[in-house]
Design a protein around this nucleic acid. Structure first.
Lengths: 215, 215
DNA sequence: ATCTTCTTGTGCTACCTTTCACAAGCGAGA
DNA sequence: TCTCGCTTGTGAAAGGTAGCACAAGAAGAT
């Protein structure tokens, strides 16, 4: 499995898994690449190629066994263990994330939250106590936290990210609108609502002006 | 400008714009493709290629004029007008979005919010009154809402999305973990925290097992 | 006015991702 | 047991995206 898997493939695998979990809950036993493609927005050939990078899980003429494929995907994505997560910054986004009950269901345990605002320190949100940022390093080490979610204002993002990585974080989910500069062996994903909205505006605008071209 | 611009290019343009707005605020007058690349996580050649799809905005030997390029990018992305947005579902994510003050700064006016929960109807969050879902259609038409942000539970997402589109929405930002089936001329972007976290887990796990391979 | 230095804009190339198309293989039914 | 219908797995082709390398051109120094 030395093969290098592209980011877009990993995203699709995660979508397949999302669908498989639903099918499994509905006790559906078998699914074809065509059905899986239909419900995740891709093509049947793409589904089969994606899965084929990791082995042959299907039965010809039949399809894929739902529970088996689900487990295989969870293994591939590294979701057979639990992951300990910290939320850095307890503003609007940070608190919404702390209250998001599905994390635990999906194997993610939020075990720490930090903020620089003194008035917030000591608060307990969804069972997690808000700690001062000065306790970041010892807490990351003690609780073996490997994922940091950055939900601070943009000015603080780079600094807390650097500190989290030095304290042992191996992955960063960044909600701050800034490109973080970190060692290349740290996994980083960015989530920016404004950026997505701007992308939508381009699509709507471009579609409109393309229509004018036709007239 | 009949050229078809890829999604990844649009994402990068948005990042360039984000950086240019910062530089403009700091009164920086000129920026090179190299600097822009450095601060947005790409390469200088990529920056120049991306911009060249829309014309030549730079001066050779000098760089790009920050305010001019900023305006050009805003024009390209369709951000010289204001956009009216509705939030569908006022749970944790929905309320966090309503409280997110930067939307207005960026040209997005949240002019409506809906929920099916009777106890929430009539609430006023950040100046927006929560309405029952039954008022969705007339409100979209009256207020000329073109973007719908879906923040409902997953079970309701497809239905409210379909209704929003029928009522005039041309773009959907979907926070529900489901692939929406809509007419292909509707622009859709998906934001799913769990999906991003799973992607990070794969990267961390794959990096670990690749290291074992080397040993 | 000329030279030097710097950065853009772009054709070409290399790489990567997706799609196509079909042989291989499995199960059901006669 | 044999045949038929269906779906997988995959090599090959197509399509798209990113990087390289350099000519063109602008600004400032001499």
């Amino acid at each position: 499995m030395a093969r290098k898997i592209s980011d877009s493939t990993v995203r699709r695998l995660s979508r397949y898994l999302r669908r498989l979990r639903n099918l499994d809950r509905q006790e559906v036993k078998v699914v074809s690449s065509r059905e899986l493609a239909e419900s995740t927005g891709t093509t049947a050939a793409q589904v089969r190629k994606d899965l084929s990078h990791f082995g042959s899980f299907g039965k010809r003429g039949h399809g894929y066994a739902v529970p088996e494929l689900r487990v295989r995907l969870e293994e591939i994505l590294g979701l057979t263990r639990r992951w300990r997560v910290a939320v850095l910054g307890v503003g609007k986004i940070g608190s919404a994330l702390l209250g998001y009950g599905f994390f635990a269901q999906r194997g993610f345990d939020v075990v720490a939250a930090f903020d620089s605002d003194r008035t917030k320190i000591g608060w307990e949100l969804s069972g997690v106590r808000v700690q001062p940022l000065s306790e970041l390093e010892p807490t990351f080490v003690d609780r073996e936290i490997s994922i940091a979610i950055i939900a601070t204002p943009v000015e603080a993002a780079q600094e807390v990210a650097t500190r989290a990585v030095r304290a042992g974080a191996r992955a960063i989910l960044n909600f701050a609108p800034i490109k973080l500069h970190l060692s290349p062996d740290v996994a980083v994903r960015e989530m920016d609502v404004t950026l997505e909205l701007e992308g939508l505006c381009y699509m709507v605008t471009a579609a409109g002006s393309a229509a004018e071209d036709i007239e």
